[in-house]
Amino acid sequence: MAEVVVVTGGTAGVGRATVREFARAGADVAILARDQGRIDATVAEVQAAGARALSIFVDVADGAAVEAAAERIEQELGAVDIWVNNAFAGIFSSFMDMSEAEYRRVTDVSYFGQVHGTRAALKRMLPRDRGTIVLVGSTLAYRGIPLQSAYCGAKHALQGLLDSIRPELEYRDSKVHVTMVQLPALNTPQFDWARAHIRPKPRSVGRIYQPEVAARAIRFAAHARRKEVWVGYTTVQAIRGDQLASSLVDEYLAATGVEGQSSGVPIEADRQDNLFDPVPGDFAAHGRFDDRAHETSWQMGLNRHRAAVADGFAAGTLAAGMDWLLRRRRG
């Protein structure tokens, strides 16, 4: 029987790529999003892959609406096996230039949206004692950066949610699994439709990956039963760097973090953003950085096969040790 997968924010960026990834693997997918046109286009892609699709128009900031969506999914597609909490909102702005309403909206979507999805999924998975919930995080769940305090705060909060829920499930001896995927910078439409209080167009900093890299990692995490999956060597670099020398990272970001997120190209006067309402148009998965986005991650390849890598490292170390011992004895 096909897996039943829920993807919030499933019509663009990482969400759209994740829907495609699961559909190609034969899963039936429920797509939760706010723009009906993009929902219809995404449903057509799932059906073209030979899978069933269910479209639900919903704002994940509305907990009651998410709960109603979960009920409908189970009635029409069947018991949910995997729930991917992907929807988010962001704003490029200094902390003091944001209004309280803007800050709260980012938090309501990016944090409480995942809380609502997790609660709706657990309500159904716990009695069955099976299922997986994927929290979609970011490098910024560990290391905040300038101009994105609302988004970084939401992702940090998700880290606390993960750390709290997992021992509760273990205490219950539950087989329900909750995991979090920490993503790097990605080539998605967010840079063209996130609200911005900066004059130049925002851009990604550092190495950037295609959303398909994230989608493959999310599907992997949904089945690997690990607490976290870090994607991209830049994610590992940022998290470990902050753990080792957080104050030095502060100084580095003070010098580079603001200008580094500015493209130098002025924002269009008629630019629309999706903070409170969706931007019309089928933006699909990719953003405007196809010319420099990487389609693979060698770090993720090693991550998928870490047991074999560890065995190979151990075998190599043992062989080197034996060679050294033999040469010592001969000498």
Rank of each mutant, 00 (worst) to 15 (best):
M1V: 13
G10W: 04
G15W: 05
R20N: 12
V29K: 11
L32T: 07
R34Y: 04
T42P: 07
A51H: 03
L54K: 08
I56W: 02
V58L: 04
D59S: 14
D62H: 07
G63F: 00
A65P: 05
V84D: 14
G90E: 02
F92C: 03
F95M: 05
D97T: 02
D108A: 14
Y111F: 15
G113S: 07
A120S: 15
K123N: 15
R124T: 07
L126Y: 10
D129V: 00
G137Q: 00
S138Q: 03
L147Q: 06
Q148W: 03
G153Q: 00
G153Y: 01
H156G: 05
L162K: 10
D163S: 09
R166N: 13
E170L: 04
S174K: 01
V176R: 12
V178Q: 11
M180Q: 12
V181I: 06
P184Q: 06
P189N: 06
A194D: 14
A196S: 15
K201W: 07
R203H: 12
R216Q: 13
R219L: 10
F220W: 09
F220E: 09
H223R: 14
R225Y: 12
E228F: 00
V231F: 12
V231T: 13
T234W: 01
Q237P: 00
I239M: 13
I239W: 05
S246W: 01
V249R: 13
D250F: 02
D250T: 02
E251L: 15
A255Y: 04
T256K: 08
G257E: 01
S262I: 08
G264C: 00
I267L: 15
A269H: 12
N274F: 05
V279D: 08
G281V: 00
A285M: 02
F289I: 06
D290Q: 09
A293K: 03
H294P: 05
Q299F: 15
L302K: 13
R306Q: 15
D311K: 11
A315K: 13
T317A: 15
W324L: 13
L325G: 09
